[in-house]
Write a protein that binds this DNA or RNA. Sequence first.
DNA 1: GGGTCACCAGTTTTT
DNA 2: CTGGTGACCC
Length: 687
Amino acid sequence: MFDIDRLNPQQRAAVEHTDGPLLLLAGAGSGKTRVITCRIAHLLQRGVAAGQILAMTFTNKAAREMRERVEEMVGRDAVKGMVISTFHSLCVQILKAHIDRLGFKRNFSIYASSDQQQLVRRLLKDEHADATSKDADQVLWQISDAKNRLIGPHDFRATGLNPVSHWTAKVYPRYQKELKAFNAVDFDDLLMLTVRLLEDHSDLLDYYQQKFRYQMVDEYQDTNPVQYRLLKLLAAAHGNLCVVGDDDQSIYGFRGADVNIILNFEHDYAQTRIIKLEQNYRSTGNILEAANAVIKHNTNRKEKALWTADGSGAAIDYLLCEDDEDEARQVMERIHAVRYDKDLAYRDFAILYRTNSQSRAFEEQLRYENIPFVLIGGQQFFDRKEVKDVIAYLKVLTNPFDEVNLLRILNYPRRGIGTTSADRLIRTSATLERPLWQILKQPELVEDLGQKTCDAVQNFVRMMEHYRGRFENAQQMPTTLADLLKELKFDDEIYRQEGDLGRARRRLENIEEVTNALASYLERDDNPSLNGFLDKVSLLDEVAPGDDKKEKKLNEDAVVLMSLHSSKGLEFPVVFLAGMEEGYLPHTKSIHETFDIDEERRLCYVGITRAQRNLTLLGASRRRKFGKLEQRDPSRFLVEIPDRVINRLGRDALTPSTEEEQESKASHFFAGINSLFADDEDKSPCS
DNA sequence: GGGTCACCAGTTTTT
DNA sequence: CTGGTGACCC
């Protein structure tokens, strides 16, 4: 069924360990995916029913790939019934079936970031008129953080250190109450409520424990306390929990992931078998040596070192550049040279950086040189205003109690219900303690509402009810949506708002993408509904065009630009790791606020281990930031890389700059500028 | 209800 | 230097 002989001894041990807790520490490039798929195939071969296996991932993409790989190995039918899913999708499924036990209706809405923001902003303004939207974001951040730690609205305690936390303590309970009134849950609730559901209803817990006898979790180093708790609950009955991860690649601490969860696994689950995968099949020896040397400086970690049976390869280069523009030019030069020399495609090159704003200089230079490139990250499809507007309509159609979205569309496109009228409607809803939607159905209850407004409200309600009826016919959904958009005159509205014709067209195309996504969802789902579509959209599941695009992007023949975070799990023959400077890597915030240099080092480690053959580290000695030129120091991580694997090019890369040297750098800099005007193809001063 | 202007702040972000 | 936000004015 599968080729177990091609696995190395550790990999084979992992595949053959079926019962009892297993901690699989899988270093970067150690063939982890192959082990996971083989292990699932092995379980099936041993007679475990597909339906008894639960495999958890963090991304839809990972889930999809895992399913495909297993299907390839054992055939489509053998995989039927197996649950391979992200934490969030699994929780949506569980909640869809049982959320009524928590007092919600099953057609609940999922609030993603912008919905949450709207709500928190409103509540915060209610309490503190002078609160800014930035404060709101911080409050939302704290609420999310609390939920990730299973801290409920009434258990949250403000700390004296953080003034915002007092606002959070006030707002969090109201936020949660409103969500319930709107029949909505937010992203973190998906997990937190599922945990609560299972904790409070032993029959359900029992059911899922019996159902899932074997569990596997990928990227375990990125789990947060709620996810940890969920797994703990599910695994309690059988204890066949296999977690796969690499503590050295834990880089989502800022989102609640806690590296100690993987570090404590063996103490948490008695009789844990630990297997380390350290043989690397991706990178050259020099690259691995650099990676090992850097990560060794972290103290709170599992001891391990990557090694390869292949050669040591080319040395790593470190280029100290003049400024950000120079840094970008150096990369271009190397892309040209290496591409020609090694006969590589553009897609074999990746430029990685710590913050998305760093991409700019590279984009400009790539454009200038006519090198095709793709930028991963940046604005998400569902963040676009026009997309959010359409989605808001759909959300209200499935769940009229969804007040955030109801308010969003109440007068968009304009239909004569201005802020004053909206305020009156909201106030009436509050005093009568009835949902806004009910008030809209009886606008005559509202005092001081003009006849014209009254009519507008009634027309709006009538229209929405009409379309809600039509959307119940799932097969017709794309047509219904097209009709709705036509009736709303969305096109006109966008042409009116957007002076630039090209931009208007692009926005309309985005709206069309929503219709397309709906159509493709219809094809794929065996039991489609509008609500089901919206769930997929909220989870950014395969139906989402934004997601699709990311994959398409990686298939194009183009140089790839992305943040270090986005690069995890990927590999490229040639990698440029830009901005190796204090302030970027490690980032200023981690130096001065979160004090988590270890996570920055892991980020650096992730970047280094993306490279297969060729790695170039770059940094600038001065950089244009917020308009003015700033002096920069080389990253402390550079010193940790042993000299024998790295060529330090440019000037005294690691000597701290003295005043004298700064002066010489300055004159060098101006010389560089002058040479720009003198030569057309300038040989940059630092190469 | 919408448009303009001044001001402010400026990580990472799988779902 | 940018993009986003809020106040203010038409």
